[in-house]
Amino acid sequence: MRLNRLMFRAFLLIACLCGSLHSHSQRLVTFEGQAQGTYYIVKYLSEDTVSLQPQVTALFREIDASLSLWQPASLINRFNESERGVLMDAHMRTVVKRAQEVSRATKGAFDITVKPLVDLWGFGVIRHQRKPSADSIRYALQFTGYKLLQVKGDSLIKKKAQVQIDANGVAQGYTTDCVARLLESCGIANYLVDVGGELRAKGVNARGNSWSVGIERPSGAAARPQQALLYLAQKSIATSGNYRRFFDEGKTRYAHTIDPKTGIALHSNVISVTVVADDCITSDAFDNALMLWGPEKGLKFIRQHPELRLEAAYIFTKKKGETKEAYSPGFLEMMKK
């Protein structure tokens, strides 16, 4: 569920000069690297220019030990291999709690118990490109559903031994929030964190302006997409799209977003949805459901639930192949046209 150069390509607009309106002594610190199968970029203003990258790297390792499906000994893999459940650490506890809240809010359109279906469609740790049989989908659906999970104290319990969870729909958003909290614990008030296209911003950049993300908008007949700016003032952003992980079978393109209720991989006209929320785990979780719903139902959901403080932007195609866009009012207000 990541920003991609095809659509909604994020770039960071950072000034080279140290002209902060708040402190002439603060300087821009930047570092980047690879983690969780993707990139990360951290930028912040600080009087102390010693890089916090070692601490961030250690944090990535800690989160992976809890939530990574690619680490055989991780806590999430121990849960999936167990018949009953596990004692959760702080990372799993936070992610499961928020995931269950979003599952209830979306009536199961987002669900971390989707792992058997993800594996069946070939979008899990072991990859393949073929549509599964209807019988195998029906079988996997028996073990899919957020109500099959029970949280009892610090324990995560499965109601059926075959239940397995996949936190990839929220892990990078959660990691972005963790990095942001690490920076804040070090006294940093102005930062932009980007983990694989999931971003969280606070304060201002070196020029004293809100951090800005560049997005590409459909340009109609123009040769190149138009550029617009989205200003992230105390906000987070995540994008889900059907252009990164997919396979074609016949005339149908199946993307990695899977409907937990039907067990079917996404094959719609929605190219991407970008979601803005107060924290990145929320953006990351809701972009899955909004992607499945499409612009009409997704934007209606946002209007009906102002308490969630969500904004969204859709890129989709019409029947004749024309690319269109649809925005929530609040998203448009955050853009500079």
Rank of each mutant, 00 (worst) to 15 (best):
K297Q: 14
M291D: 04
D259N: 15
D287C: 15
S272G: 15
V50S: 12
K336W: 15
D48G: 09
A140K: 13
K152H: 11
I41P: 00
A180K: 03
N205M: 02
I41D: 13
M88I: 11
A255N: 12
L230Y: 12
Q129L: 02
Q164A: 15
F286E: 01
Y314M: 09
Y44T: 07
S20G: 05
K158L: 13
K115S: 06
G196T: 06
N209E: 15
R27H: 15
Q100V: 12
S236K: 08
L17M: 08
N269I: 00
A105T: 05
K202Y: 01
W293V: 05
A65F: 02
G241P: 07
V151D: 03
V50C: 09
F246H: 08
Y191I: 01
T282L: 12
A313T: 06
R130I: 07
R127I: 14
R104E: 14
A222S: 13
N4G: 08
A134S: 11
S272W: 07
V56H: 05
V29Y: 10
E81V: 01
A221T: 13
R207Q: 12
T282E: 10
G108R: 04
Y174Q: 01
W121Y: 12
V42E: 10
R5T: 12
S136V: 11
A312N: 01
V163D: 15
G187F: 13
A326V: 07
S25H: 09
G187T: 11
T144G: 06
G122A: 10
P306H: 06
V204F: 10
V114F: 04
G19M: 08
Q53V: 09
C186T: 03
E184W: 07
L308A: 08
T257Q: 09
T57L: 14
N77H: 06
A109D: 13
M88Q: 07
R200N: 04
L332C: 03
F286S: 02
G321C: 01
K261S: 11
E83W: 05
A189D: 11
A313E: 04
Y327H: 13
S219C: 11
E311M: 02
G33A: 09
E83A: 14
V56P: 00
L141M: 09
A238T: 07
I237S: 07
L12C: 04
R130Q: 13
R78I: 00
K43Y: 06
L266K: 09
V213D: 01
D64T: 04
F79A: 09
A255D: 12
V29M: 09
S68W: 04
A167R: 00
V179H: 06
A228Q: 13
V95D: 06
A255M: 05
S46A: 11
R27I: 04
G208I: 11
L87H: 03
L310R: 03
P329K: 07
P218W: 12
H256G: 08
I271Y: 14
I215P: 03
C178A: 14
H128D: 02
F31W: 10
F331G: 15
Y146V: 05
G298P: 01
G85A: 08
D111C: 02
I302G: 01
V275W: 08
V50T: 15
A255I: 06
S219L: 06
I258H: 00
V213G: 05
L75F: 01
Q227G: 10
E101Q: 14
Y327D: 06
K131L: 11
N168V: 14
V275A: 06
I237T: 02
E333D: 12
V163R: 03
E322R: 07
K131W: 10
R303M: 02
P306S: 09
R253L: 05
Y40T: 04
S240F: 03
R217E: 15
M7Q: 08
